[in-house]
Nucleic acid binder design. Structure first.
Lengths: 159, 159
DNA sequence: GGTGGATGCTTCAAATCCGAATGTCCCCCG
DNA sequence: CGGGGGACATTCGGATTTGAAGCATCCACC
């Protein structure tokens, strides 16, 4: 099964997949253990807290979270039920709606953030030296640019 | 929200999370587009194909896939229904059972592998130079060792 | 100013996933 | 032997996720 990936890259690929899976489930567990939030909840709160007016269109949010539209609808409904966000219809485009951070949502984020960031550091970041951080950043920012949906990829593979 | 992660590490963390999410969904889409298999199906087939006797205990499989026990039960049942694996009760330990690769499962893997590996190369590996591969491998193998569940972590964090 | 196609989001049914409870079986210790 | 605690896997109910279909609105063009 290794016809098309050399041994080094295969090992790299497998280590990346497995460790990432473990890391994500661990962070999720940590977050749930000390905050009523899931990883998705937390990420929504972060994005809203940084947005101008602490509000974001559903589509924009879905794009950044890498969520399907229906998944985001469910996610926001759930958070709305718990009072973490509100939903308002968008004045510029009446098809659309936007999610708005509530005071309770901001508070929940403020309470969860230190724990979560400690968890990210403990499981991942504290083990990385500066060169490794730089390497990961370069690799994953490049990957993100290549995979973001807004780019027509037709001319970039002259092969 | 950045009290505990410096700007470089925060950027690194975000790039890693977002790109990985995008990569996994893209690979899943590619795999489904040209093979009746999900990413999880594929991974199960790979692990079984490499195991001695092309069989693995459920628990072992769950551990390697980073799946909860009930999720693995569901996964294997689904693949059994489609003829990709068989389930046998384990002779040494009658509580347990093992998943066994079938001829159809092996065939499905052989057909899917070239497409999938091409996809992994196209989206990720072809963009990495050797130094980056080495860096990722080192980082993620270390991370995997730290997160694998078999280690008692009690003495490694003297505060 | 109308209309056909696109867009933004939601809804719906079905598939998947999780944690708690369960049923079997192993193994240690009396 | 003969419990009893523990380990392995499954089942069950409920939560989440998905993709397809639906609805309302926008917009480019006539």
């Amino acid at each position: 099964m290794t016809e098309s990936l050399d041994a080094e890259r295969m090992a790299c690929w497998r280590a990346y997949i497995e460790s990432s899976q473990r890391l994500f489930t661990r962070l999720e567990d940590d977050l749930r253990a000390d905050s009523e939030l899931s990883f998705a909840d937390y990420h929504v709160l972060v994005l809203l807290s940084e947005a101008p007016g602490q509000r974001l269109r559903m589509g924009e949010l879905a794009g950044r979270l890498v969520f399907s539209p229906s998944r985001l609808t469910y996610q926001v409904s759930s958070m709305q039920r718990r009072g973490l966000v509100a939903r308002q219809s968008c004045p510029q485009d009446r098809r659309g709606s936007e999610a708005v951070l509530t005071a309770a949502g901001l508070l929940a984020l403020r309470e969860a953030a230190p724990h979560h960031l400690r968890s990210v550091r403990a499981h991942l970041m504290d083990d990385l030296d500066d060169a490794e951080v730089a390497c990961l950043t370069r690799v994953f920012e490049r990957l993100g640019r290549r995979l973001r949906p807004d780019r027509d990829d037709s001319s970039t593979h002259p092969e």
